[in-house]
């Protein structure tokens, strides 16, 4: 800041400061409100613990599902040119900008008991997704997968195609090339996408509560529990919030090398 050329105009500096305060003040508030001495006890209450467990299970399933389906999708987007590609791509990443509650309503309209997919699932396989843990996983996958797809697609695009050329001249089938060359070389990108998708799934609220409801032990994930407990047991809600904040900070730290140190 000692060099004149580096000094920001005062209005810019002031607005920037306000912007920073807007982000930081709530975090300070949360940390002030937390009863640190009882943090572990609060997190250990049956309802909180059940929500944490459910959140872990559902978010990990959602991440796994997003990887199994999203990595191939990302590969298709990165490598195959087909008519309507950009339209299909836009639809795929739409959940990133879609209001989560709208996502929940849309899921209900597709997979609800009387909807066009859900009714068949019910009559053919006796499967009901609404108000079930599987429904939570579906909602979380829906909102989280786009984060994985765009991250992994970028990783695939940045791969030098000559590695694939080298593999085929050595006799590798397309599947071998994908499994032994493309996947491992895109490994860091896939890991980053998975972490990002997991973080998004973990914090999912709107689509989950709309589609799967708020049933303790079955569909009540941590964010839902926070919302519900805010009235009755605010200290538990705060403790859970601190936990989610800690997870977010950890995710940022993990991804730091990838996004923050790029410059």
């Amino acid at each position: 800041m000692s060099r004149a050329g580096r000094r920001a105009p005062w209005l810019v500096a002031l607005l920037g400061l306000f912007g920073f305060a807007l982000v930081v003040l709530p975090l300070i508030g949360l940390l002030r409100e937390a009863s640190w001495g009882n943090l572990w006890n609060d997190l250990g209450t049956p309802q909180a613990w059940a929500a944490i467990k459910l959140s872990l299970i559902c978010s990990l399933w959602a991440t796994a599902l997003a990887m199994v389906l999203g990595v191939p999708l990302a590969w298709v987007f990165a490598r195959i040119d087909f008519p309507g590609r950009s339209f299909v791509w836009a639809l795929t990443v739409l959940p990133m900008v879609l209001p989560p509650v709208v996502a929940g309503v849309a899921l209900l309209d597709a997979f609800g008991r009387s909807s066009f997919v859900g009714a068949r699932l019910h009559s053919w396989f006796d499967v009901q997704l609404t108000f079930s843990t599987a429904g939570v996983v579906l909602a979380e996958t829906f909102v989280a997968m786009p984060f994985l797809v765009i991250t992994v697609e970028a990783a695939f695009r940045s791969l030098d195609r000559r590695y694939e050329d080298a593999a085929v001249t050595l006799g590798a089938s397309r599947w071998t090339v994908f499994r032994r060359v493309i996947l491992p070389m895109a490994g860091p990108g896939i890991a980053a996408g998975a972490v990002l998708a997991w973080a998004r799934a973990l914090g999912e609220f709107g689509a989950t509560i709309t589609f799967a409801g708020n049933i303790k032990g079955r569909t009540q994930t941590t964010p839902l529990a926070v919302y519900l407990l805010l009235e009755s047991q605010p200290e538990v809600a705060t403790a859970l919030s601190v936990l989610l904040l800690a997870v977010s900070v950890t995710v940022l730290a993990v991804l730091r090398r990838r996004w923050l140190v790029r410059s």
Binding site: D160, R162, Y163, D165, A166, A167, V168, T169, L170, G171, A172, S173, V181, P184, M185, G187
Partner: peptide, 20 residues
């Protein structure tokens, strides 16, 4: 005949060794 079924050994410029 696709490359994987040709009896060819290909040495690339800059070698293109699999880094992993």
């Amino acid at each position: 005949v696709p490359p994987e079924r040709r009896s060819v050994g290909f040495g690339f410029q800059d070698y293109v060794l699999f880094p992993h």
